[in-house]
Design a binder for these strands. Structure first.
Length: 282
DNA sequence: TCCCAGGAGGTAT
DNA sequence: ATACCTCATGGG
């Protein structure tokens, strides 16, 4: 059990529904069940009271970034009325610290897809390759480590509704090897060179790289630009941009650099509030 | 039927 | 560097 304090807001629901993670499900009593690596975690929030099983306090605090000073972060990017409203609408949303490998695969799975489809793909991969985790006679599946996805037997991944992304996951699984050295290297680098390194992996372009840097490596300068964020930025901040063309690399860079200047060093946090509030504002 | 979704790789200029 | 083309899949 963890007791939250008023000066450090946290909304479990907003944190888990904003689209940053894909393996959490709400259960009928209002709590949540999720799989992180090979752990099955259950957690629920009743006001300032957070109860959970499957992981210790230390893990939960770290995973949900409960040790971050959220009001200070929000204050740092609260620089105009629109982001202010988004921040109020998603009060308590925190960026999660995801395990790098499953985050990397998740965002390779994400390209040119919608969130329900991404969730299905990841579930397929876990079911096909992951370690079984039993609870009350029900079997869940952990997320498979790289060697399990690097096997040579043909494109078994395409059976996971991966489409053309199957070969990207397989190639990346081969390239990272069987240690976490790749993640340590990325972590040790500043944002821009870390981004260039990540983009060397097959299936990782600018958008996926920025998501992975933000969600797995806490590089908060990353500002992922998808079609939603592009729309919001054009409507609210950069009206000179013309759309209805594919998002070019130049335009992507223009948007993320504007965001870095306008929102500051936590622009990635601002991005998640904009994304999470995308349906709410006319 | 067409269009869209948390895009990226490949190829020809 | 930049412009086009293609890549599966499911839902509206």
């Amino acid at each position: 059990m963890l007791s939250l304090t008023d000066d450090q807001p946290f909304s479990l629901d907003r944190t888990l529904t904003c689209g940053q993670v894909f393996r959490w499900h709400q259960v009928p009593d209002g709590g949540w069940r999720g799989i992180v690596g090979d752990r099955l975690i259950r957690i629920r929030q009743d006001g300032s009271r957070l109860t959970f099983s499957g992981a210790g306090k230390k893990f939960i605090k770290h995973y949900f970034s409960l040790d971050s000073d959220l009001p200070a972060i929000v204050a740092s990017f609260d620089r105009d009325p629109f982001i202010h409203r988004s921040a109020e609408a998603c009060h308590g949303l925190r960026l999660i610290r995801q395990p790098p490998w499953e985050c990397l695969v998740s965002y390779i799975c994400s390209t040119n897809s919608n969130i329900p489809m991404i969730r299905k793909r990841i579930e397929h991969i876990a079911r096909a390759f992951g370690k079984p985790v039993e609870e009350k006679g029900i079997t869940y599946f952990g997320f498979p480590k790289p060697p399990l996805l690097a096997g040579t037997c043909e494109d078994i991944l395409t059976g996971c509704k991966m489409g053309y992304r199957g070969k990207y996951v397989k190639k990346t699984a081969c390239d990272v090897g069987d240690t976490d050295d790749w993640a340590a290297r990325i972590r040790s680098l500043p944002y821009e060179p870390a981004r260039r390194e990540l983009m060397k992996f097959s299936g990782v372009g600018p958008k996926a790289a920025d998501c992975i840097l933000l969600f797995a490596f806490q590089k908060y300068e990353a500002f992922p630009v998808d079609v939603w964020i592009r729309r919001i930025m054009r409507e609210r901040y950069l009206p000179a941009l013309v759309s209805n063309t594919p998002l070019s690399s130049n335009e992507y860079n223009a948007i993320r650099r504007f965001a870095r200047d306008h929102f500051g060093e936590y622009c990635g946090y601002a991005q998640e509030y904009l994304y999470a509030a995308r349906e709410e504002d006319p």
